[in-house]
């Protein structure tokens, strides 16, 4: 129980780019995430949210501080922390199926037979309804479909934590809503631990158990954390007038637009 409450631990993470005294991006960020929890990190553009995600992913080393996932320190990237990149990052010369299969082969090559890997690849494509388009190349499918394949690829790694870096940022509003519902449904079914970067307040409230709000950079840190005690499954339309939803949304909006207004954007 104790271990599951502190499934992901971010301890006093600092990040500066450049040499000593260079630009400080993150200052003293500490956060713990429970197993199965959906946490969003929200903040203005350039505040260092993506840097924080990359540190958890292991793609960027922290200047100081530690990150532990399931009691293992993060020192390098790995499939236990699968990332869904903002721009999908599918390999354009591989088909939808091959993109997912590449990950499955690499991670489960020693553990599963060929048939099992094939079935596992298809099962993950099924989760995002991409089985029918499995032989298409990324260039032949829409942006939303590409992002779904990116999610299937990340899920296929059976990660301990799923890291979503503004996964819906490049999509139109309708596709985005559809994909948000899908991600919500999948993460409820599979019980994934998810950390999502976003700058969309509605998205954060709708999907998250907790919303972590970062102050403005430089030297951003956690300004406030908002619990979202809404029952699941959550239905977008019913929530619009739900007082808890409205309250959370107002709290986040107030944080972003009153207490930590993005000065440069004015």
């Amino acid at each position: 129980m104790e271990a599951n409450d502190r499934y992901v631990q971010i301890e006093n993470v600092h990040k500066s780019f450049g040499s000593a005294g260079g630009s400080e991006v993150l200052r003293d960020v500490s956060l713990t995430v429970r197993k199965g929890e959906f946490v969003s990190i929200i903040g203005h553009s350039g505040c260092g949210k993506s840097t924080l995600l990359n540190i958890v992913a292991g793609l960027t080393p922290a200047t100081s501080g530690n990150v532990f996932v399931d009691n293992r320190q993060v020192v390098e990237p790995g499939p236990d922390r699968a990332v869904v990149f903002q721009n999908h990052s599918l390999l354009p010369w591989l088909s939808v199926y091959q993109n997912v299969r590449l990950a499955v082969d690499k991670i489960f090559g020693g553990m599963m037979s060929k048939d099992e890997r094939h079935d596992w690849t298809l099962r993950n494509l099924e989760l995002v309804s991409m089985v029918e388009a499995r032989n298409k190349k990324p260039g032949e499918i829409s942006g939303g479909m590409k992002q779904r394949v990116g999610i299937a690829r990340a899920l296929s790694m059976k990660p301990k934590i799923l890291l979503l870096d503004e996964p819906f940022g490049a999509l139109d509003a309708l596709t985005r809503a559809h994909l948000q519902d899908r991600v919500m449904q999948i993460s409820m079914e599979l019980g994934n631990t998810v950390m999502m970067i976003t700058h969309d307040v509605e998205e954060a409230v709708l999907l998250s158990d907790r919303i972590v709000m970062l102050t403005n950079g430089p030297a951003a840190t956690i300004g406030s954390i908002c619990e979202v005690p809404l029952e699941r499954p959550r239905l977008r339309l019913e929530l619009i007038s739900d007082p808890t939803y409205v309250g959370c949304r107002a709290a986040v909006l107030e944080f972003l637009h009153k207490r930590h207004r993005f000065v440069d954007a004015a």
């Binding site: 292991g58 990237p77 790995g78 499939p79 990332v83 990052s89 590449l102 690499k106």
Partner: peptide, 20 residues
């Protein structure tokens, strides 16, 4: 992006050369 994918998957040098 492709390099990040390779890192997350922990592709070794040979695999990176051939697949990416």
């Amino acid at each position: 992006d492709y390099q990040n994918v390779a890192k997350v998957l922990r592709l070794n040098r040979g695999e990176y050369f051939v697949s990416i």
